[in-house]
Write a protein that binds this DNA or RNA. Structure first.
Lengths: 198, 198
DNA sequence: CCTACCGATCGGTAGG
DNA sequence: CCTACCGATCGGTAGG
């Protein structure tokens, strides 16, 4: 394949940028994994920055298309079951894909030359998150859920939950983490289903 | 003052390590802010790594003593009011101190040579968090709160809340952030005060 | 795709 | 506290 190494460079960059960070990953590191020498990278990319933007661009596209899919499929069950399903799907993606690992790192600590670029991409993704969550909130509301929770409160609390879970995943071992997820969900679910005034 | 510059180096390192990260901060950067030349740093520290561990050690001590204080003072009001007060105090610390900014960065993405060191310090802090939250849970329980939430669920959900809030702070402007905090708290409070079965 | 090389910068040392 | 310097490594280029 003619473009095999270009793909390999991008996959390796995705992995190493996510593991060690952009600045801490050298082009020699990437070349070594691909099995070529550093200058050969310049046959495919004109700079390290171009590799980064290419990789991020790909990753955003795949995130967006995955949220589109989540949005289009049928959502059987109660609103709470739907939220739980989206929660699981977000968590799974967040915890298992290299794309999510890199995206979280750079949205949290963007490398200096990319601050503006990252924040633009961040708001593109936000649109997708919000669309999905708003639609769940609306359909839940029609069925008598979310009595004391408006759509902005729902969206904000859900995204905070996801972010918190993501951080916890960094701190704890797999076993402890799974227990914690259930504890966290329990309290969140109690919040969503509270039907009396405060 | 004889140790003036040693203090200045540590304060500058605290600031720059938190802003740009450990690897991205050079000793020349630090020296420039302090107003000396790079080699003069070695009059006070034997290596860059020593500066880092010194700074982190200080920061952990000050975090722990601040949680001791939170733990010792009187906690008037309902359990929910107490939790909100601790929430505000965590948030305030997290969002305004250089110590918290650096600590979050390195606990989340520890520089390679310090992975073990950081994880040891992380568990020291956990002990303090847990002590405080467990005591609030116990006193709340005695007054009829937390009917459906055991102490581990409370602790896990509270720490997740705090971590989520911390990430949100990175993403949004101050105004949007303050709205989001209230939305997030609203749902969390509904969770804590839910008195009916699910 | 490679070897050979560039200027800049890094953490750290020598010597005063 | 400084100047002067070290070996290593960085992103990137020349030339084939």
């Amino acid at each position: 394949m003619k473009f095999d190494n270009k793909k390999k460079i991008k996959q390796t960059a995705l992995d190493l940028f996510g593991q060690k960070g952009y600045e801490e990953t050298s082009l020699s590191d990437i070349a070594a994994v691909v099995g070529i020498k550093k200058p050969s990278i310049y046959n495919h990319f004109s700079s390290k920055e171009e590799i980064f933007t290419d990789v991020i661009e790909d990753l955003i596209k795949s995130e967006i298309s995955s949220y589109h899919k989540l949005h289009e499929i049928e959502h059987p069950g109660s609103a709470i079951e739907q939220v739980r399903r989206v929660f699981d799907s977000f968590c799974h993606r967040l915890l298992t894909t290299k794309e999510a690992r890199l995206w979280k790192r750079v949205s949290f600590y963007p490398p200096d030359p990319f601050k503006e670029f990252i924040s633009k991409k961040f708001y593109e993704l936000e649109v997708e998150y919000s669309r999905l969550l708003r639609s769940i909130h609306a359909s839940g509301k029609r069925n008598g859920y979310f009595m004391h929770i408006d759509v902005d409160q729902f969206t904000a609390s859900f995204l905070c939950l996801i972010d918190g879970v993501f951080l916890e995943h960094h701190y704890y071992t797999e076993e402890i983490f799974k227990e914690r997820i259930e504890s966290i969900w329990k309290v969140y679910e109690l919040g969503l289903t509270n039907n009396k005034g405060v």
